[in-house]
Design a protein around this nucleic acid. Structure first.
Lengths: 197, 197
DNA sequence: ACGATTGTCTACCAATTGGTAGAGAGAGAT
DNA sequence: ATCTCTCTCTACCAATTGGTAGACAATCGT
């Protein structure tokens, strides 16, 4: 039975550091120090830095899927409420872990391979949203429009908010969880206003 | 008379490279190579990499101020039209230069000093937007709400869209100028729907 | 004509990066 | 008891990073 804790702890530390300061800016040494282990131990668990990033992406994607599924299942049938629940659900881990979604953005700038692997994990989520929006529009329960555009805009806005707290705080905005939540609520209001049938 | 062209060319190259691949990921050597000069020449014009980043920020902020001012001045008096014009104006340079706004985001993750210097440049722009929204709401020409929240949301969304093309393309979205424009137009529609008095 | 200034260069440097090679500790199974 | 496998370690390495020191040419005002 492979000892899981070290690997898990490396993933946790890497996720936090990558998310806050960026993948390129964080060295394996720093991650190792954070975990209380040598850099070579990190390279034992992950063949390369790229493999580590990949592992972190797996973790993030898996978390997102679980969180979204749970939100969809427990939300009422009304599409606006359901969208609302998903937005709130996606924000919850993002607030708890600053930069979780910021990582998603940065990875696409690394290598083509990593951008592709990222797409494999994000695409299904967006596709689900597109299909859902399309269905509800066809049923007349949402104001009709281009579901792809709306999904893409929502995706961009959510990652925008989630990765922006540094800037917002610098501008005089509070970047704590409360500030992020009010911003999230404003987004929810926008979505309601724009999508209401 | 200081020869301006080399310095300007360095700034241009740095802006493009920083914006697309990130500040930490781009070395002075690479920028120098791009300009056709040695790295030490870059360090002659800018005392350090941080100073170069600072110079690039100055350039970006100055461009943004000019562009926004022009848009405000030439837009009709109606607040929705005016907001519309500003959104379009801000996107224009962002589309021409991929990652111009992405740079703004990343810089805040570097050092505290650079985050602060960034704030000095961005804050006035957001403050102007907040003041304007507040005035128009008070005059009953926009649906009332919290202007700070709306301005922050708009800022986050715009930088989100502008820095997301890589991800969106990876997901099957076209990241060319046309794709960015449809996304921008969707944002404009959202703003209209949410702000209309 | 000439000294000073401006701009670019060659030649280094210490520090850090991601990564390799291989030793050794610890536990389980036989 | 020892063999094996899992895990973490020490000891390196080549390459690259941002940055320094100083030579050399061109251009300038005088």
């Amino acid at each position: 039975m492979t000892d899981r804790t070290t690997r898990e702890r490396i993933l946790d530390a890497a996720l936090d550091l990558f998310g806050v300061r960026g993948v390129v800016a964080v060295s394996l040494d720093e991650i190792a120090r954070d975990v209380g282990v040598r850099k070579q131990t990190v390279l034992y668990w992950f063949d390369s830095k790229e493999a580590l990033v990949d592992g972190v992406l797996d973790k993030v994607a898996a978390e997102l899927v679980i969180v979204i599924d749970a939100a969809v299942r427990s939300a009422p049938d009304d599409p606006l409420d359901r969208i609302d629940a998903v937005v709130r659900a996606v924000f919850r881990p993002a607030v708890r872990r600053p930069g979780l979604l910021g990582l998603v953005r940065e990875v696409s700038r690394l290598s083509q391979g990593q951008a592709d692997r990222l797409a494999e994990r994000i695409a299904p989520l967006i596709d689900r949203a597109v299909a859902y929006l399309g269905d509800e529009m066809a049923a007349g329960r949402l104001r009709s429009g281009d579901p792809r555009l709306i999904a893409a805009l929502g995706y961009a806005t959510i990652t925008g908010i989630a990765t922006e707290p540094e800037v917002l705080r610098a501008v005089g905005w509070t970047a704590d969880a409360a500030g992020l939540r009010s911003l999230r609520d404003e987004l929810r209001a926008f979505l309601r206003a724009a999508l209401q049938a």
